[in-house]
Nucleic acid binder design. Structure first.
Lengths: 222, 222
DNA sequence: GTATATTCCGAACGTTCGTTCGATAATTAA
DNA sequence: TTAATTATCGAACGAACGTTCGGAATATAC
């Protein structure tokens, strides 16, 4: 659209061509699709949500959806990718505020859980349904997961080194396992945390704090 | 079958009617079906495993399977039920060996993880797919889950009371949350534990021991 | 032996699924 | 304005799904 009716006079006025207008619209609708799809996938599961369900939940036809992705699996991949990017980007920003590894641990847990709660649907899909991916899609998401876990491992390694920063301490099997324990605590929350009744007693920040507290005391006294 | 050929003479010999033979055969095949189905469900997911897949994996026809359960969902229910019964029964037996709550905690975690590893397929289904149940099936399994979690809560309450056994201590929100954290640690193992390479360093008993260690230190110093 | 109950199966039914196609509507370019 | 690109959609396709049915095969009872 290069010209619009001016409201008051009805005179036709010429605008500079809005080059990015279409792409904006495209990406706006795409992200809308991703969000709504994640909601349905989270509620009913990936395999239990049909393309017709998705089309019905949005203002599009079944065939119209395929303008935004090639297959249903690509849609799942896009949701996973988008979620992961957001978590990691947010984490990177926050981690720069300190070099104290215990504080960094706290930041990681806080960031992870806050994102979990804020995007419960998408994260449920990511933690729960990404096994449904195949081929390259599966590989890409899995590598991102590994990289994410490795961040925690590195923080735990620094904590284990202690303030002396002795260089001899290596990444042990114990540290890798401990990281998995902590992720277990965090990721399991999607099965029981109810954001509807987030009284202060169970605010996600308190949950995060208590998790770190429990984990850290046990981890440090090795 | 009331008569069999005797091997040496070929003479027909009469046996007492084996009343339970048929029921034995029935339940033998049923449990075989449950085990094999759990394997497939665990590997490919409940919704991604078709009745034809199941029939193909066993020595039965598609229609023949329906002699042992009414619907596919009932099959999932039977698997879940069977797994739960086994875990709880085993736990009850072991718990009688001590009244020390810390030891009981250790027993619960050990029992849970050992069962997880020994029946990785079925437990994966139980922890992962039981949301696919509906109606009464869902309700029954969910109540069993709650009861199981409550056992842990009671043990944690005793630990929290301490040796003095003061009666004033009540079940707090913190204890309930802590129970969920611990279950998170335990149940998440199915995503990473590989029974194939169970070197001594990551034997499930050591994993259980370390989990209790980490959790307990943090939980006690409240 | 015959009669009864159990176990098994080939073939099909009706439904739902993900995806595609051809065409129409809407937007952008010039 | 006209041409080109993008967005949308109704309708249909082939495949796969869970389930059913009538009868065959087998085992049990008497």
């Amino acid at each position: 659209m290069t010209s619009r009716k001016e409201y008051r006079t009805g005179k036709t006025v010429r605008f500079a061509p809005e080059i990015r207008f279409l792409k904006e619209r495209y990406h706006l609708k795409l992200s809308d699709i991703l969000i709504r799809s994640a909601q349905l996938f989270a509620k009913n599961g990936y395999h239990n949500t049909s393309m017709r369900d998705l089309a019905g939940a949005m203002n599009t036809s079944l065939a119209g959806l395929y303008h935004y992705f090639k297959t249903k699996e690509e849609l799942l991949f896009l949701i996973s990718q988008y979620s992961f990017d957001s978590v990691v980007r947010s984490l990177d920003e926050r981690l720069q505020s300190t070099t104290n590894p215990s504080e960094q641990l706290h930041i990681l847990v806080q960031n992870h859980l806050q994102f979990f709660v804020a995007n419960l649907d998408a994260m449920k899909v990511l933690a729960h349904e990404s096994d449904s991916l195949t081929g390259d899609n599966f590989r890409i998401i899995n590598e991102q997961k590994k990289a994410y876990v490795h961040r925690l491992e590195l923080i735990l390694l620094e904590i284990h080194r202690g303030p002396s920063r002795k260089k001899s301490v290596r990444m042990t099997e114990d540290i890798k396992l401990a990281a998995l324990y902590l992720f277990g605590m965090m990721n399991w929350t999607y099965t029981w945390y109810n954001p509807a009744r987030r009284e202060k007693s169970t605010s996600i920040e308190k949950v995060a704090h208590r998790m770190v507290e429990i984990f850290l005391k046990g981890f440090i006294n090795n």
